[in-house]
Design a protein around this nucleic acid. Sequence first.
RNA 1: GGUCCCAUCGUCUAGCUUGGCCUAGGACGGAGCCCUCUCAAGGCUCAGACACGGGUUCAAAUCCCGUUGGGACCA
Length: 480
Amino acid sequence: MFHTSDGDAMSQVRVRFAPSPTGFLHIGGVRTALFNWLFARQQNGVFVLRIEDTDQSRSTDDSIQAIVDGMRWVKLDWDEGPFRQTERMDLYRDHAVRLFEQGHAYWCVCTPEELETRRKDAETKGGSPKYDGRCRNLGLTKPPGEAALRFKAPQDGQTVVDDLIKGRVVFDNQILDDLIILRSNGYPTYNFSVVVDDASMGITHVVRGDDHLTNTPRQIPIFQALGFPLPRFGHLPMILGSDKARLSKRHGATSIMAYKEMGYLPDAMVNYLVRLGWSHGDQERFSREELIEKFSWKNVQTSAAVFNPEKLLWLNAEYLKTSPPTEIAQALVPLLEQAGLKDEVRACSIEWIAQLVVLVKERTKTLVEMVHWVTPYFGEVVVFDEEAAKKFLTSTHAAVLTKLVERFEALPTFSKHEWEEAFKKLVAEEGIKMGQLAQPVRVALTGRTASPGLFEVMEVLGRDRTLLRLRRGIERASRS
RNA sequence: GGUCCCAUCGUCUAGCUUGGCCUAGGACGGAGCCCUCUCAAGGCUCAGACACGGGUUCAAAUCCCGUUGGGACCA
């Protein structure tokens, strides 16, 4: 009943994501979750969320919430869970006892100090540092006091992992240690609780980080001793920082929610993360539906990948440019409110904010940048950037600006085309260059020297506010 | 130290299974040019890699062996 063939027909695919609650959800974790999720959705399978909190003595509801929030933000929905290992302690103990009763485990009374000295001894003599098996054949029944339960690992033959990603990996069983499965404090160890969980949750494909590959031959004999069918295993390559060391905080933000705060779109994050270790020819952009359809283990990379924030930024900009403006506007609203524009935002429609998005989306790479670009369009008047005003709103500019306002006022309604005509005509008559009038107008309208096209700006502002701001600009110019 | 994994432009990768279509393709980043009312965006162009050494073969990025270099795990 040990099935190891791929897909294994009839049975439904069940995969899991099993993060430990470390306070936040790491982007490496998100990528692991993503591959599992894609496979589950593609196979019409089940995606389980499990919190591995046995080791984490101070694992809190807060950190579980952080995982849940992170998963929700990137829209990776799970079908079962979140389960917590700390709520399943009886299950681990029962299985441990079963292993003991069936002769697959034994009590060990060696103290950590004894183990340490014997290990060092063995090492100086050139031996292996693994447990020397002193208690293996003592036949101890649950002894009083401190004792740990050890698993009797096979000592000959080989354990073969037919990995979904790495292919066939062979381990000699001689290297296998008699792992502690229950500590003297009654807590299960990692390698034991994962097996019990994966088996009892009916996980068919265990897909996790590369760092667990060498744990796999330790776990397989436990599945077998417990009489459980073996799942398929898949080990994803790690994500590295720019110095090729494991990605960590010193490389920059690693929490998925930090990217939310920096103004990244969840779809861009997912798209970037999936391409870090997976590819489909030369394609760079994928919708969720496409990913679900095209995902395949055979296109998962075997080597580690360096996280490249610049490419992520580019992708985010792509998403900003091509996503429906209303969607972007909705994501932008909370950030605008945080930026102190609560009243202003409430005073206008989402459609108008979407117009702002269209106005600036070509020139921003994150929502945070977008907030900065979009702020001048809220409110009646604008705050001048001092340097910009000093340069472009001077007495020399006042005259021509006044002429411009007069011509605009002569046009009863705003029309982008007509106003542009009027503008160009004035420039021609004055014998100046476009820029000589455009920059002062730009500063008057937006307060800054860089903005979208002037006539698009006027369109968004509307006739009245355009004229008002121009007059304010003239006032400022005349004063200087 | 032992075991295991990995190795194509600076980075992400295509190609590797089933050798020839590869004077190695795409993307990010970089450089330059064009467009232009500013800032962007966009278009075009350029620089840039098969870790090394041996085999096998008419032919190797692709297959085999070794070396080196990274990484993970066990302690």
